[in-house]
């Protein structure tokens, strides 16, 4: 297990290097002159002298490899430059907004798991009867609901009509309810389908029959022999739609005035604040890779077979 973590953390280095190079290239090849945007945001009229000065200040007059190298050297010391808009260090901006996003995504993930596992299991146990039909119907409809639209429907119901929940901002648990519902519905539905399918597969296996024949009480059979096996594909899948969940928070934040990283990114896009954009994508990569590592650790913890697989699989990744 410790080796799995160490190897994956070591791989994070080259992966970030590749992503940083790609990001740098894309931004430099992208449209426009960052110096122009810098002047526009700073409110300086773009005369030739001012442009030259801005290019010198931003280091744009140096050769590209040199620019990349100095940017990388700064990034290695966690210095991602300063926001064109606020003038504050990018890292400060991102760290200021990251906790809100992580809170929203984290609680949404917990809600997803807490509801989808029992619901999926219940549907599998009552196959083709009404709980199963209801769960399947809900899952089919639920994956089709746009999260930002769901957000508005919730606001209509809970804030406008009933007046129970605040429509905007971040504060106590009342502020969490609607954003979490909006973010998690889709993952919840996908997961319910997966748990159901996985549980059905496990229920048909001989070791479950044997456990029942041994006279184990049903709850014991379910928790020990069905659930644990059924959770393996679910954990793998969670790693995959974790990205969807994080992406979902980006949109939902804008509805509820949630002061997270999605709002920071959208305003950076509108202002063409390239340093913030660069820092955003790099940090999201780190966050996502770490989340996936956590998912893999959870998978290895549930399924001992995966531990060996993860160990044996490492040679594929290393040269």
């Amino acid at each position: 297990m410790r080796r799995l973590i160490a190897v994956r953390l070591l791989l994070l280095g080259p992966m970030l290097l590749a992503v940083s190079l790609a990001v740098f290239t894309v931004l430099r090849l992208g449209r426009g002159d960052p110096a122009l945007d810098y002047l526009r945001i700073s409110g300086i009229p773009p005369s030739d002298a001012a442009l030259l000065e801005a290019r010198r200040l931003l280091g744009l007059d140096r050769p590209l490899p040199e620019q990349y190298w100095s940017w990388l050297a700064d990034a290695a010391r966690l210095d991602f430059g300063r926001s064109y808009v606020t003038g504050r260090p990018v890292l400060d901006e991102i760290l200021h907004h990251l906790p809100a996003t992580l809170q929203l995504a984290g609680v949404s993930l917990l809600v997803t798991l807490a509801f989808s596992v029992p619901l999926g299991l219940w549907a599998a146990l009552r196959r083709d009867r009404w709980p199963d039909r209801v769960a399947r119907g809900l899952a089919f409809v639920g994956v089709s609901v746009p999260n930002f639209w769901l957000g508005f429907l919730l606001v209509l119901l809970f804030s406008v009509t009933l007046g129970w929940l605040p429509a905007m901002g971040r504060g106590g648990w009342q502020h969490m309810v609607m954003p979490v519902l909006a973010v998690s519905l889709m993952s919840l539905c996908i997961n319910t389908r997966l748990v159901r399918a996985a549980a059905l597969e496990v229920l048909n296996q001989r070791h479950v029959l044997y456990a029942r024949l041994r006279g184990l009480p049903e709850h014991r059979v379910l928790t020990r022999h069905v659930l644990r096996n059924a959770l393996v594909p679910v954990v793998t899948a969670t790693g995959m739609h974790l990205g969807e969940l994080l992406g979902g928070t980006m949109v939902v934040e804008s509805i509820f005035g949630w002061p997270g990283i999605g709002r920071l990114a959208v305003s950076a896009i509108h202002n063409r604040d390239y340093p913030v954009l660069q820092g955003f994508i790099l940090l999201m990569t780190v966050v996502f890779v770490l989340c996936n590592l956590a998912v893999d650790i959870a998978g290895a913890w549930i399924d001992p077979r995966q531990r060996r697989l993860a160990m044996g699989g490492r040679r594929e990744f290393l040269p």
Binding site: M15, V23, G243, L246, G247, M250, I281, T285
Partner: peptide, 11 residues
């Protein structure tokens, strides 16, 4: 490596 929607946002 990067979630699709976040990557789209970046692009």
């Amino acid at each position: 490596t990067i979630p699709t929607f976040i990557l789209a946002l970046f692009f």
